[in-house]
């Protein structure tokens, strides 16, 4: 049997675009743009999230992200990180659409600065408006199966529940709700935020998620490029374990060697 085959054939599709890599990486917090680009390469990611910010009028020659990560090769997913209400998020994405020329975006409307927890009322409102304007929003949200369903009904092209607060690295706090969201969704589900290390990413995939989005876990590792590779392998391993179908858990031991023929 060819063990390679399932990985190669195993793609996922969001808003009509098909990808092989199930790992989406952020491009924030890196020491240099070179390190950032090397980490993206090592992660195998085909999509990166990017932010929209004012140009620096006092230094027009500042290096540009696009010089290091080629938007023709890697899909840029503009996000609304830092927006605390629907109007700010919509305004940001209208500009992002003009800057990049694409409708696939990541919506994130935050409730308050300490936890960066999503404001679901504003998130839902923004989703409805964006869909009306022709955007295809992948939406960051709470790990709540009902909220996830409401976003999907509003036209979200992917549901992206948090595993734990943004940048916390605490890992998936509620596996039950993530699994419920996966079971109930008919659009891709990606754990976004909270992943700290490779096992967290594998766990998200074992729960049946279509992908994982992370930034800090790679950018703040001592060796970001090595961690990017670890995350690539973890996402693949978790995906394969999910597809393979894990064994049932037992309360007690079950020997692996035959009992017959014991001396």
């Amino acid at each position: 049997m060819n063990v390679q085959a399932p990985v190669q054939a195993d793609t996922w599709t969001v808003a009509g675009r098909t990808f092989t890599s199930r790992l989406i990486v952020g491009t924030g917090k890196y020491k240099t743009l070179e390190e950032n680009a090397a980490a993206v390469e090592a992660s195998g990611a085909e999509i990166v999230t990017v932010a929209v910010r004012r140009v620096n009028v006092s230094n027009p020659n500042e290096p540009m992200l696009t010089d290091f990560i080629d938007p023709k090769r890697i899909t840029y997913l503009p996000n609304t990180a830092g927006c605390f209400n629907a109007d700010e998020a919509i305004r940001t994405l209208r500009l992002a659409r003009e800057a990049g020329g694409w409708n696939l975006v990541k919506l994130e409307v935050l409730g308050e600065a300490k936890t960066l927890y999503p404001d679901m009322r504003e998130t839902l409102r923004a989703t409805e408006t964006l869909v009306k304007e022709g955007f295809e929003p992948m939406v960051y949200c709470v790990d709540d199966p009902i909220a996830a369903k409401q976003l999907e009904e509003a036209g979200a092209v992917a549901i992206m529940p948090l595993g734990a607060p943004i940048g916390s690295g605490l890992g998936i706090q509620n596996r039950v709700t993530i699994r419920l969201i996966v079971e109930g969704a008919s659009v891709p589900v990606l754990v976004d935020a909270g992943v700290g290390t490779a096992s967290d990413a594998a766990q998200a995939m074992e729960l049946g998620c279509d992908g994982v989005l992370m930034n800090t876990a790679i950018a703040e590792a001592k060796d970001p490029v090595m961690m990017a590779r670890a995350m690539k392998l973890a996402v693949e391993a978790g995906r394969l374990a999910y597809l393979a179908g894990r064994m049932q858990k037992r309360r007690y031991a079950d020997p692996s060697s035959p009992l017959a023929g014991l001396i």
């Binding site: 950032n36 932010a51 910010r53 009028v57 992200l65 943004i166 930034n215």
Partner: peptide, 10 residues
């Protein structure tokens, strides 16, 4: 005017 570009972000 607001003039913006893409920068690194999560």
């Amino acid at each position: 005017y607001e003039i913006v570009r893409f920068v690194g972000g999560g």
